[in-house]
Nucleic acid binder design. Sequence first.
DNA 1: CGGATGTATTTTGCATACATGATTTTACCA
DNA 2: TGGTAAAATCATGTATGCAAAATACATCCG
Lengths: 223, 223
Amino acid sequence: MDDLELNANAYLPLRDVVFATLREAILKGDLKPGERLMELQLAAKLGVSRTPIREAIRMLQKEGLAVTIPRKGAQVAAMTQKDMEDALQIREALEILAVRLACEHITKQQLAALEHNIALFEASVKANDLAQMAQADIAFHDMIYEAASNPRLMGVLNHLRENVYRYRVEYLKDDKNHPRLLEEHRQIVAGLKRQEKEHVSEIMKQHLSNQAAAMKDIIRAQE
Amino acid sequence: MDDLELNANAYLPLRDVVFATLREAILKGDLKPGERLMELQLAAKLGVSRTPIREAIRMLQKEGLAVTIPRKGAQVAAMTQKDMEDALQIREALEILAVRLACEHITKQQLAALEHNIALFEASVKANDLAQMAQADIAFHDMIYEAASNPRLMGVLNHLRENVYRYRVEYLKDDKNHPRLLEEHRQIVAGLKRQEKEHVSEIMKQHLSNQAAAMKDIIRAQE
DNA sequence: CGGATGTATTTTGCATACATGATTTTACCA
DNA sequence: TGGTAAAATCATGTATGCAAAATACATCCG
């Protein structure tokens, strides 16, 4: 494990800061699957007591990022290929739901934001700025969730995204995926603009299955 | 709030027992939406210290059954009609996914169990045994989740069910819903047996929209 | 009487102390 | 030397103590 740092700048309960820190570390891979989350050790490393650590672990546990065995402790949740495929199946169903709902509810402002996002994505592809690309991709989908006007759906989808995040980043690292991804985003926006619900569902489905296939390759290569 | 009782029979961390107790109390309505979850008070009532209470609250929070405001405390999450509709939309998409997956994966044993469940449900309708009916209904859907062979999907669906549980029970209280519900279950099983994916999706969709409509009526009547 | 202000009480947030179960080490015996 | 048992160590589970924030309440001033 690398050294964790607590950016406690905000006036937030420490448990939330610890939670965010550990979550980040897990998603970035600094804390690896199977790695033990020992309270005393983390407390020392983050400069807090065990109490906020424990509460953060309970939260990570409910988020599915950690698993705990009573009297044994917590460890970073592993993700098998099957887990991944399971999550992607759910994600497909819900992303399609989201884009269908978005078709009904999307506003002009939101469409404009999506188009701006595409420009941003294009720029980051050209600049080969991976971080910005990942951020733009996330933002793109977030905007659609937002337009779906179903906060709960947004919550579930964000939650699912977290768990496949590691591989998603790998997917973006491969240059050859970029043009297709960009084109799909374009078509989705075009479909949303015309409120072509069925059409846009199809594109989204394609968009996701392309990603899913690539991500499965990645996880297979890693094992 | 009624008096809570801790059935600490098991050898489990207290936080888990407390969590289960509070969860139950919220779902049954003993702890009402908006009601404050005060640590000291709950600790006294359950005969434990604040520590396991706090951890249980963090878990409830992540489950969406409680909301916490920093330095202010936690309270039982309210569920508005919109929240409910949002959850039902997601549930529809995922129940359909589940039944489609079940079509592919279901075994003879699982089909037999479903048929047995229908007999049980029918018996409890005849006996007008509401508790058994509710249990059978939950078991019916659980079996389908199980057959879908996607544990994660099962997790999300169970989670969604929790949040609409209160109203689902109300739905079952109305006698006139029983025959239709039973018939829909029968058709779903028949469709699963023949692996008619599209057909069974349609029936499930109908099944859920019937329930959703009724539950919306209920929540409307309550407000 | 209304509103503001200061004080008392309550409640959360965090740390620490103590107890208990798990794990590892060590020592002893076959 | 190998294995087992006991002891020491370590980590988690739970309770409690203390500080600070929030709330409630009373008092004072206009």
